[in-house]
Design a protein around this nucleic acid. Structure first.
Length: 673
RNA sequence: GCUGCUGUAGCUCAGUGGUAGAGCGCACCCUUGGUAAGGGUGAGGCCGGGAGUUCAAUCCUCCCCAGCAGCACCA
């Protein structure tokens, strides 16, 4: 008699099962309810098909739709397969490639048959319908182990050149699997999958868009059509997600920037921002805030040149590694052909010297550090700059305020000794924590580790990475997310590992903003040194750091985070005094004068319009407080305050209103207590 | 940079092989009205830029530019 398998369950109990039995059998043995609810299994921690037989004794945890993360992952993966099957069923000759799950759904990269245009949005409804048909048919998804040669033969026979290429590169010794959908379609896949297509909710997905994507993510390869979908466990979840997308569109900083008259962009300066008075007001408030923070933290602010001779950039290494993203200008007045009003035709002498506009501030800061002789007693030296940089970004990457060609960083470089690194990083982590909390963000910190292409010895990298880990361990952070330090292998800069701050905004999106990087390369290349206690020259470590990242991007994030309803201290216009009748004009003017005297950014609205109209307009403009005055208020010396987002008005004396606004308009770092 | 789509009034968008329309906004007039659109009149456009086809191009074709979505990139 064969030996029974010992299957241990999460509650500690052990069940004996026949060899060849599956997690599904265990579920059935426990009860019919569970048998119905179980959609997959974790066997010794690995997510597996519910119907895949055990290979020996095992620890089993059954997965139901309550294990949302696993369930979503499975469902999305299945949706991707159903999508591929649907496309091939509708359009024979379509090649399929890859189709993974994403954060909110799934996609599949396909190549349309040669005699057909690439797929477009217009094809999506048909594909969706076919997917629903496949789901309704409840086709079993069956795992089968194939040899590599079997796979290659199949794909080659079917003209699936991408799949065949991939199969050829699969490792010889690994168990290769395919999944059948019913008896008529299969895809190469590691799995796991749900037991059948019918486990999916046909109302819980939606194909959202098509886009170009390169085969294996390399732009030298053929371009495929990527069909995106969003997929969920049920219709309710799908609808909630679609609502969230609508909410994100409403908050789009490009739309709000125009509506609130904050800034504009135009093609003559694409990728650079025209800040309007109201938008620049936000900038100035942020800048003043950051200056106070940095002054207090022992930074000294400097200002360095926009243009430097390219030889300087050669020495720093940027001209070699970064030239394609840099703007260069000839160090001469270009000859311009006289063509009247016609197009100018400037030419540059072949022997002209070239200068480059700075794409970053670090080399200039090293040059400041190098002036004179620095003693170890002077360290650390923290040099800060609101540094305006230009980078010639790929045009397709430009995006509103989030990705621009001209931007200003809240940049600083800390020059310190090896021994001071952890302490300086710790101080920075705590400074960043205060700042992000002042804006109401939570965040995650991630550690980007050495990339493949890098400068410096492995020893230095070991040290630099460990310093950052140590600093995180000893730092006091309150505004953080789950508190775990996620490490990102290969994501560091070529000269340094970096800590990255990823903010989470009001609707759950994340944005990378702050960073600190421990650099031993640039001080060496630019020969920066200090005199140590021993009288010898030593290399300082250079910490690159920023908290906002760039003003442009940070303002974009703030606009979206607050949906335009900025906190009063940042609001370009903090209050509007609006009259109901012109008899109240004089009182309104007096109120404005007193508010201005108290430092409030206030405007008056004495126009011959109804109060309804004024309320509507200033609400759209996202003015935090509307102070309404009519005859009653003028007589009593009061104002009727309508606060953005509230339905009820509050009547209070003008003096009380001023005190309240003044308190709200105080930046968070200047508040008492 | 790549693929696809788009470019018409300040904004949002209709439209046509015979040089153009709406709503909002703006200006002026009437209205002085108590918390999200009072009424009327009017001004405003090289239909993204260049070339081609045509008797005729905002519309068709090609090239360029910019924007959008995705990809790639992101020190």
């Amino acid at each position: 008699m064969t030996e029974l398998l010992k299957i241990s369950l999460p509650d500690g109990s052990v069940r004996e099962m026949e060899p060849g039995s599956t997690p599904g059998d265990v579920a059935a043995a426990i009860g019919p309810g569970l048998a119905k609810a179980a959609i997959a299994a974790r066997v010794d921690g690995e997510l597996r098909d519910i119907n895949r037989p055990f290979e020996g004794d095992a620890e089993l945890a059954l997965v139901t739709s309550r294990d949302e993360e696993d369930a979503l992952e499975l469902a999305r993966h299945d949706f991707a397969h159903v999508l591929a099957e649907a496309v091939q069923s509708l359009y024979p000759g379509t090649q399929i490639t890859f189709g993974p799950a994403t954060d909110d759904g799934f996609y599949y990269d396909v190549k349309a048959p040669a005699d057909r245009e690439p797929f477009s949005m217009d094809d999506l409804p048909d594909i969706e319908e076919e997917m629903r048909r496949i789901i309704k048919a409840d086709k079993p998804l069956r795992r089968e182990v194939w040899s590599r040669q079997q796979l290659i033969d199949k794909w080659e026979a079917e003209g699936e050149v991408f799949k065949a290429e991939w199969a050829k590169e699969l490792p010889e010794n690994e168990e290769l699997t395919v999944y059948w959908s019913g008896e008529d379609w299969l895809d190469m896949c590691r799995g796991p999958h749900l037991a059948s297509t019918g486990k999916l909710d046909p109302q819980a997905f939606k194909l959202t868009r098509v886009a170009g994507a390169y085969w294996r993510g390399d732009q030298n390869n053929p371009q495929l059509t990527r069909i995106y979908g969003t997929g969920w466990l049920n219709k309710k979840q799908l609808n909630a997600h679609l609502t969230r997308l609508e909410e994100a569109a409403k908050r789009d900083h490009r739309k709000l920037g125009r509506e609130m008259d904050l800034f504009h962009l135009q093609e003559e300066a694409h990728g650079s921002v025209f800040w309007h008075p109201k938008g620049y007001r936000i900038w100035r408030e942020l800048e003043a805030y950051m200056r106070r923070k940095m002054d207090k933290a022992g930074y000294r602010e400097i200002k360095t040149p926009q243009l430097m001779d390219v030889r300087q950039w050669e020495q720093s290494g940027h001209w070699g590694k970064y030239a394609e993203n840099m703007f260069a200008v000839p160090d001469m007045v270009p000859e311009v052909e006289e063509l009247g009003d016609g197009p100018a035709n400037p030419s540059v002498a072949p022997d002209a010297d070239w200068m480059a506009i700075k794409p970053m501030n670090c080399p200039a800061h090293v040059l400041v550090f190098k002036q004179g002789i620095t003693s170890y007693r002077d360290l650390p030296i923290r040099l800060g700059e609101m540094g305006c940089c230009h980078r010639n970004e790929p045009h397709g990457a430009l995006h509103g305020l989030m990705r621009v060609r001209q931007f200003t960083q809240d940049d600083a470089h800390i020059f310190c000794t090896e021994e001071q690194v952890v302490e300086e990083v710790k101080a920075f982590i705590e400074l960043a924590d205060q700042v992000y909390r002042d804006f109401g963000f939570t965040y995650d910190v991630k550690l980007a580790l050495r990339p493949e292409k890098r400068f410096g010895s492995d020893e230095d990298w070991d040290k630099a990475e460990q310093e950052l880990r140590d600093a995180v361990a000893v730092s006091d952070m309150q505004g953080e997310g789950d508190g775990k330090l996620e490490e990102l292998p290969g994501e560091g800069a070529f000269y340094a590992p970096k800590l990255e701050w990823h903010l989470t905004d009001a609707i759950g999106r994340t944005w990378q903003v702050g960073t600190i990087q421990g650099d031993r390369v640039l001080p060496d290349r630019l020969d920066a040194s200090y005199v140590g206690e021993d009288g010898e020259k030593h290399r300082p470590v250079m910490l690159h750091r920023a908290i906002f990242g760039s003003y442009e991007r940070f303002i974009g994030i703030l606009i979206e985070h607050f949906a335009g309803r900025l906190p009063v201290w940042l609001a370009p216009v903090q209050a509007v005094v609006a009259t109901i009748v012109s008899d109240a004009d004089d009182y309104a003017k007096e109120a404005v004068a007193r508010l201005e005297a108290a430092g409030i950014r206030v405007e008056s609205d004495l126009r011959n319009e109804k109060i309804n109209y004024k309320v509507r307009e200033h609400s759209h403009a996202k003015v935090p407080h509307l102070l309404v005055v009519g005859n009653r208020e003028a007589e009593e010396g009061t104002v009727a305050i309508r606060t953005l987002g509230e339905k009820e008005q509050r009547v209070m004396s003008l003096a009380e209103a001023i005190a309240m606004l003044k308190a709200e308009a105080t930046p968070p770092d200047l508040r008492e207590g």
